[in-house]
């Protein structure tokens, strides 16, 4: 098991090196931030002053070393657009996205697994067929449309829930949370459902198809031949075997939630990292893009690593090293 985890750690390291390289190339070769920061009316002095200030006048290797050095310390320089420290902006925005993502993830995983198991076991039932058909609409409906739909229904027509923003937030140290106030919690509901719905559908469909696959296996047939009840076969044998491949994908989906937050945050004007990133792309604000990329890849890598370790615990074929 140890070599397996070491291998994964090495791979994760590789992912970070690659994203680091991409982030740096973006810094170095993409766009001219001067164009973006100063409008049409600019003097040569302005341009030169800004160049020196941003360190763009130095040779590429020096810039690269500086970038690596600073990145490790969480320092990504100054936003071209806002003129503030990128790390400061990110720290300010992160709680909003993380709270939203965590809530959606719980919603997606719990509902996804429950519905997936249900539709697999009651394969030919009316309810299962209905859920499956609905899920197809779920994957065909783009996230932003779901968001707009929910806003229209619950904010505009019914007026129950807010249509944008985080509501009232409480500050605890460097963290701002919406969990402690009524308006903060209310504001979370619609974005969390919007963000989690698509992932939930994916997880549900995956759990269902894996479980059906497992139920076709010989050992399930043999379990039936031993006279085990359907309950034991479904929830003890089949479910455990189903979870082995599903866990990896769920890990990827959790990472995806953070990325998909970009869409939800745009629709709900949620003051998180996603909104920051999409604005950065529109204005080619490279430091923010690079920092977001690095931060999100660290998050993905950590999630995937945890999933792999969990995986090794579930599957004895990995735990006990091969004879």
């Amino acid at each position: 098991m140890l070599p397996f985890i070491l291998k994964r750690v090495f791979q994760s390291f590789l992912v970070l090196v690659v994203t680091g390289a991409i982030a740096f190339s973006m810094f170095t070769f993409v766009g001219d931030p001067i164009d973006n920061m100063l409008g049409q009316e600019r003097t040569m002095e302005d341009v030169e002053r800004l160049r020196t200030q941003l360190g763009l006048d130095r040779p590429v290797p020096v810039q690269y070393f500086k970038f690596l050095n600073e990145a490790v310390r969480g320092n990504f320089g100054v936003s071209y657009r806002q003129g503030r420290e990128v790390s400061e902006i990110i720290m300010e925005r992160a709680p909003a996205t993380l709270e939203l993502a965590a809530l959606s993830a719980i919603f997606a995983v719990v509902m996804g697994i429950a519905l997936g198991v249900f539709t697999a076991i009651r394969r030919d039932g009316f309810a299962a067929n209905f859920i499956m058909s609905a899920s197809l609409i779920g994957v065909s409906l783009p996230t932003f449309l779901i968001g707009i739909l929910l806003i229209y229904l619950f904010s505009v027509e019914l007026g129950w829930l807010p249509s944008f923003g985080r509501g009232e937030v409480t500050k605890i140290g460097g963290w701002t949370t919406g969990f402690l106030t009524e308006s903060g919690l209310k504001a979370l509901i619609l974005p969390a459902i919007t963000l989690g719905l698509y992932q939930m559908t994916l997880i549900m469909r995956l759990v269902r198809s894996e479980m059906l696959e497992v139920l076709r296996q010989d050992y399930i047939r043999f379990a039936r031949a031993r006279g085990l009840s359907n309950r034991v076969i479904n929830y003890r044998h089949a479910l455990k075997n189903t979870m082995v491949p599903v866990i990896t994908v769920i890990g990827l989906q959790l990472g995806a939630i953070i990325a998909f937050a970009i869409i939800t945050e745009t629709v709900f004007q949620w003051p998180g990292l996603g909104l920051l990133f999409i604005n950065a792309i529109q204005f080619v604000d490279i430091p923010v893009m690079a920092a977001y990329l690095m931060m999100i890849s660290v998050m993905f890598v950590v999630i995937n690593l945890l999933v792999d370790i969990l995986y090794a615990f579930i599957d004895p074929r990995l735990r006990v090293s091969a004879k």
Binding site: L14, M26, L252, A259
Partner: peptide, 28 residues
């Protein structure tokens, strides 16, 4: 391995990144 690295990132994010980079490279 290249595929694995890319798979770590959701495709919509990859598409946005490529779009952002391409936007930076192409003249206005």
């Amino acid at each position: 391995r290249t595929a694995d690295v890319q798979l770590t990132f959701p495709s919509i994010l990859v598409a946005m990144l490529i779009f952002g980079i391409a936007k930076g490279i192409t003249p206005i």
